[in-house]
Design a protein around this nucleic acid. Structure first.
Lengths: 343, 343
DNA sequence: CTGTTAGCGCATTCAG
DNA sequence: CTGAATGCGCTAACAG
């Protein structure tokens, strides 16, 4: 079953290659009857034009690459959905690359990107991602749009969520419930979104005339063991410094907090309130259901795809890089309650 | 920043295209010194060979396509991890296609597949997937390996988990706890894995001298609303037919069951035991932690990648299609307990 | 070891 | 509307 070429089907339908090519590209200047015949032949012989050849000749692959940090984060599904919804009725196709390899993007992916496999790139938030490389590619003419990496690369268009307001909303919510000592499980500090959320929390604190307590903000990764250890540390603080609320910067970290609290015999929310971030879908199913902040991931995907497509299609309305910030939303569930009366 | 071609860097280094090409392909028959010089020039000018051109000339893209039903299922991450681990130190690269579009694979993806973009394909379990098309492609010379779709296409190599034993283990576990009326939340009937799990449950039942009760096996999709409704129906059954254990064929469905039970004031596991399937990571975090069956997803990915690579590299040891069945494992947690004494 | 010559499969002029 | 000629960027014999 040797691969058929355009030449074969030209011969089979008694025409020349170019006519067949015209049919392939929906040219209007080909007799409808002829077109029908050609298409019939192609279908009959199960012919599909070669991707590589078309790409080479056209100088365009019609592929949009999407680079994601991994698939473990549930909201990748939502982002992807948003992107797909926009892209699916264009001539483009989405291909996903996951950078499982630790070393930045890995030479392989880097090669795939810069070798022109993709007409454009959507890059989702990597911790410690080497943005420089992306900036280079972008300058080199490859359209790149960032998702959830706001501010990190001013030069690149990006769409993200309003992490600052997210932190602010959580802070106000907790303060409104009477909490005064709010501890943070930060996650990857140094990452813009962490900074933003914390800044939001701080602003809420200051609105209430309080100053953030550095002792409640130790730097901790999201690895489960670290989160559990940190939770215990906080519990072991003297009563007058012990937090009455824990703000985990990621729902899955909040789950670990919840579990550790349970094991320590601490009641949530009676003794301690817990909040997360992201509203992954398990957040509504844990006990108690988690108060958290929802990010509009699908929208982020949609907007990013929109930007990329407009650049790709040359609708580049204005040269200024677009930075889109979408709203976040506080979802109050049962893991937060009024602070216990001071003892 | 016009794209450089091999010709440009040939000129820049004072050599001919072919020599440069040889350098690109690590041919041993090029002077080390020359090679070094060429590489220096390439790096300096930031040259990257065109993907399309290389693919066309070589007749091989070096890409392994992975088609997944969506990203919402957490274990996609594990499968992908397994595949990536095997592929990452080969010359191949993985690209992911998600078939978000309902219509089978969607014409676009189909085109991408058959147009030779990928040297091989790993296809992860789709509900209602049109395997015929894959069989065609496979016959046409495109290596295809299925994951988690055992038995559905005997012709294609496939790796899956032992769903039958999974169902059997759950059945025995429940029966051992004294449960006699075990209801199933089946999910997409007609799908092999559902059939297998049910068959396992049946076998356990028969071992215990019981016959499956069709009234406890209504056909229900995994959509949350359906699962909840079905749960209520089961609860409303007359006492002598009401199940004491609910077996949801997917953890996420089990979550909905758990929640519905809670709302109905039914205690788990005191009044009713609940089990899921898959051991997604939230399963350990819900209250009560869910008894479930773990599937070795990462291993499935590894094995599938292994098979595909061996075919790709022509190590096709034997012509018989390989069907690999990996073990499943019962994870007992707190959502199951002895059946309440009969009243 | 290096340069020459053909294609890979298709798109795109430009005549006919 | 259709056919012949060129080239996309690279690889692969084959000479030198």
């Amino acid at each position: 079953m040797a691969k058929l070429t355009i030449r074969d089907i030209a011969r089979l339908s008694g025409l020349s290659k170019s006519t067949v090519s015209l049919v392939l590209n929906n040219s209007p200047k080909v007799d409808p009857e002829t077109r029908r015949r050609v298409i019939a032949v192609m279908r009959e012989h199960n012919y599909v034009p070669s991707f590589a050849a078309t790409a080479l000749a056209k100088g365009n692959t019609g592929l949009i690459g999407m680079i994601v940090p991994g698939l473990t984060w549930r909201f990748m599904a939502d982002i992807n959905y948003g992107v797909a919804k926009v892209v699916e009725d264009t001539k483009y196709e989405i291909v996903l690359f996951t950078s499982t390899n630790e070393r930045d993007y890995g030479g392989a992916i880097d090669r795939v990107m810069s070798s022109g496999l993709c007409a454009g790139l959507i890059v989702v938030n990597h911790d410690k991602q080497p943005l420089d490389r992306l900036v280079d590619l972008h300058r080199g003419g490859l359209p790149v749009v960032l998702i959830d990496t706001l501010g990190a690369a001013g030069e690149l268009p990006a769409v993200g969520a309003d992490n600052h307001t997210g932190g602010l909303l959580i802070g106000r919510h907790l303060l409104g419930l009477g909490h005064r000592r709010i501890a943070s499980i930060l996650g990857p500090v140094g990452h813009p979104y962490v900074q933003e959320r914390r800044r939001g929390l701080w602003d809420a604190l200051r609105e209430a005339g309080l100053e953030p307590d550095p002792g409640l903000e130790a730097e901790t990764g999201f690895e489960e063991a670290l989160v559990r250890r940190r939770t215990r540390e906080l519990l072991d603080l003297p009563a007058d410094r012990r937090p009455t609320a824990l703000f985990a910067y990621h729902d899955s970290a909040a789950f670990a907090v919840l579990d550790e609290l349970l094991q320590a015999g601490v009641r949530v929310p009676e003794d301690v309130s817990v909040v997360g971030f992201n509203d992954i879908d398990a957040a509504a199913h844990v006990r108690p259901p988690l108060t958290t902040v929802r990010q509009p991931f699908a929208d982020m995907g949609r907007r990013a795809a929109g930007i990329l497509l407009s650049v790709l299609d040359g609708v580049e309305s204005d040269e200024e890089p677009r930075q889109i910030v979408l709203d976040t939303e506080l979802i109050v569930r049962e893991s937060t309650a009024p602070a216990p009366a001071d003892r």
